[in-house]
Design a protein around this nucleic acid. Structure first.
Lengths: 234, 234
DNA sequence: ATAATAGTGTCTCTTAGACAGTATTTG
DNA sequence: CAAATACTGTCTAAGAGACACTATTAT
């Protein structure tokens, strides 16, 4: 009878065909009340000219989340931002070159942080509990998307909407300090409809997640709003 | 310049090392108010003697969900049950034999349907929004689990709890017709605490998801409860 | 009748939406 | 002062927990 160590010593993994494993990252931001997604125009086959999510293959000894962070750094030029796994897409035929299983992720960044990649407004044709693919638009035209990336984007928006009510995701989309109005605009951009102001304020202030800074925004032509900070874990 | 068809013709995927991709299925059921999970005792290295989730490798041309359904059929003897993707676990070193990335799934079956696999009560040491690994117990002893399957089980319970409030998952754990008491017991088993009876009844009856059958349970020593049916999509 | 559970009526508390009001800034 | 927006007070409606009550069955 072999010990476990002996077993591992003599173990032969075999040479059956294995799929490639990739990560794709749905990098989202909200600017001026509009939900946007980072996309890259493909300049190579397949799907040349279509728009894709930043992605890359997972190294044989690389953790999946680490691969997603690497993609974020290399293709979007950002680090240390909100990043979580979304869903794994792996239908045979989703990439015409070979079998590729991709672990999709969602990343959230404040407006204006992305410099090395372009972002486009996200448009969603469904509401509430439904789901489906989502589009990215430019000048009123919807952009053609590569592979199944429109489906991935749709799942990302749906997940984001679901998390909004019980998770502090919106803070990842805002700068260090922000006004309640800006926070509300982020919520409205994600869920796709307007919210009641007094109710929104009550709710977020009662959550205990916000700390007033005492500072005010530099006013435009009106009364300046107080700046708040997100109360990180306590 | 190559056309896309020509490009694909000459494309060489290369021979870089690829991870193996597997599916694991957390098959859960609720019997007599107790949440249980199907586990298989390993009779081979590695982790011989420990308990694992039913799982298997994804074929090179096999859809991921299809692989999970195949595992359900072959290892648990059930088909056509609730099954959805949970999370992808892929840390290097999670399997000592080789790099294995596993797409974990959750399946739900009514009590008494599983015959070819044993189930064990699930015990969770955390509450509410937290998370963490979960244990399976037998005769008061917690079972040693293989690989990272305790973590996977923990994520499955957390996800199940989260879905409970806005998704009709509980019906997948009940037979065709059931009493409101049985439905409430399923909810209590999943969320881990007792619920208020009148409030629970009001909520589920108002949801429009339930249709009274007019039938009654065959009574034990008391007033028999009415049997309801889940109103499938309308 | 008694035991045991099914099912309901009602009170209260919390929370959200609606709406109108007051406060504070620039010009 | 006017304009514009920040912020708040209050009313109302919906929903949940708590508790006690009535209803129906078997023994």
């Amino acid at each position: 009878m072999l010990s476990e160590a002996e077993f591992l010593q003599q173990y032969d993994p075999g040479d059956f065909e294995r799929p490639s494993v990739a990560v794709d990252v749905v990098v989202m931001t909200v600017c001026e009340g509009v939900l946007q997604v980072a996309l890259i125009r493909r300049d190579q086959h397949p799907h040349m000219g279509r728009y894709m999510l930043p992605g890359g293959f997972v190294g044989i000894d690389e953790d999946i989340l680490a691969a997603a962070n690497r993609v974020l750094r290399d293709k979007a030029g950002v680090s240390n931002i909100f990043l979580e796994q979304l869903y794994t897409f792996g239908g045979p035929g989703r990439d015409p070159r070979m079998r590729v299983i991709t672990v999709a992720h969602v990343a959230l960044v404040p407006c204006g942080v992305l410099e090395t990649v372009a972002t486009y407004p996200v448009q969603v044709d469904w509401d509430g509990e439904d789901g489906g693919p989502a589009m990215a638009v430019q000048d009123g035209e919807s952009l053609p998307m590569a592979f199944d990336h429109a489906d991935i984007l749709g799942v990302a928006v749906k997940r984001l909407r679901g998390r909004l009510s019980y998770s502090p995701v919106a803070y990842s989309l805002l700068p260090e300090t922000f006004t309640l109005r800006a926070l509300q605009e982020v919520h409205e951009a994600i869920c796709g409809h307007r919210l009641n102001k007094p109710s929104f304020r009550r709710r977020v202030l009662a959550s205990g997640e916000l700390v007033p800074t005492g500072e005010r925004e530099e006013s435009r032509a009106h009364r300046p709003a107080e700046l708040y900070r997100f109360a990180l874990g306590d």
